[in-house]
Simulated scan of single mutants.
Amino acid sequence: MIIAKSLKKSFGDFTAVNGIDLHVKKGECFGLLGPNGAGKSTFIGMTYGTVRRTGGELSVFGFDPNTQSRDIKGRLGVVTQDNALDESLTVFENMMIYCAFIGVPSSERKKRINDLLEYMNLAHKRDALIQTLSGGMKRRLVFVRALLGKPELLILDEPTTGLDPAVRHLLWGKVRELHQNGTTIVLTTHYMHEAEVLCNRLVIMNQGNVAAEGSPQSMINQHTPGYVGIFRLEDKKKLEDIASKAGHLDYHEDTSGLYLRTKSLSDLTAFHSDHGLSPLQIRPSNLEDVFLKLTGQELSSDA
């Protein structure tokens, strides 16, 4: 559905996307991860023609976004980072305007809006002004807007940033339903657990390049297999001394704590027995560990 070959985008002397190759298959949920400035949003912009590529090839539905963006936009929906809703109008009025903008037949607009408001648990807010909605309600309404055109491809650009866990999980459920019903999804997110839960396959981008590609579990198995112990800050000196003498231990520190990764759970428990250091938490390696290893950057929802 999306094919990129040697795709490049430069802004003056700055290269945002550096000759990447990737493809998104029909029917999959594809994740695009990376720190701020990695090139994710630039790639997303190039897929539907708001950003013109500098070099390489790119096709979406077989169309070139540089010259056929109208054909592409008619078949995709976008949940943008910014809500971009008219605060002075009601929920229904906003959606009616957007239906007209994307060419939904006038005879279908009211029913389509009402059905999608019901689907996103917003029917009770149909006649409410946008300015009275909570942040979570506005994000759900942006999902409604993205679905009004019955898209084959749904682009979710950091769809749950800043939302509380309850709303985030509600939206995850809706994304799963859409995916199960055949919608192809491209997701960019700073939440690694979100990518693990939703994506069949993903890439991690860093400084305009693809650093890794595969399913979440295959990437964990390849780059950070094993278990992680999280230790107290007061154990720092002792941990550093032990890790420097033992080459098989993977130790790192960031602002959230001290992390020690071993290949097996038994290695981590043996470390505790041998050195008298008790971890605050023990967990299997996850996608966040892969991200940190490949990008060298800490995660944040506003990175």
Rank of each mutant, 00 (worst) to 15 (best):
57 E>F: 05
63 F>W: 08
28 E>I: 02
26 K>G: 02
36 N>G: 15
23 H>N: 15
21 D>T: 09
54 T>E: 05
65 P>I: 02
26 K>A: 06
31 G>S: 11
64 D>E: 12
30 F>P: 04
42 T>A: 06
38 A>Q: 09
49 G>K: 00
63 F>A: 11
32 L>G: 12
21 D>V: 08
49 G>S: 03
51 V>F: 00
47 T>Q: 02
28 E>T: 14
65 P>N: 04
22 L>M: 12
27 G>H: 05
63 F>V: 05
59 S>H: 05
37 G>H: 08
53 R>T: 07
60 V>N: 01
44 I>A: 13
46 M>F: 01
51 V>N: 12
55 G>W: 05
22 L>R: 01
48 Y>L: 07
66 N>S: 14
25 K>Q: 14
56 G>T: 04
26 K>S: 11
27 G>T: 06
23 H>C: 10
65 P>E: 03
62 G>S: 07
46 M>N: 03
60 V>D: 04
23 H>K: 14
33 L>K: 12
32 L>H: 13
22 L>C: 08
37 G>Y: 09
55 G>S: 11
40 K>W: 11
40 K>N: 14
53 R>Q: 15
53 R>L: 12
43 F>R: 02
54 T>G: 11
49 G>D: 00
51 V>I: 15
43 F>E: 04
36 N>K: 11
61 F>P: 01
21 D>P: 07
49 G>V: 01
52 R>I: 14
42 T>D: 04
31 G>T: 12
26 K>D: 08
35 P>V: 13
47 T>M: 04
60 V>A: 00
21 D>C: 10
64 D>L: 02
23 H>E: 15
45 G>T: 04
44 I>C: 12
46 M>I: 04
56 G>V: 06
61 F>V: 11
43 F>G: 07
46 M>E: 03
39 G>V: 03
36 N>H: 14
27 G>C: 08
62 G>C: 09
57 E>M: 10
31 G>H: 03
47 T>L: 06
21 D>Q: 07
65 P>D: 04
35 P>H: 13
66 N>D: 12
45 G>L: 02
25 K>D: 14
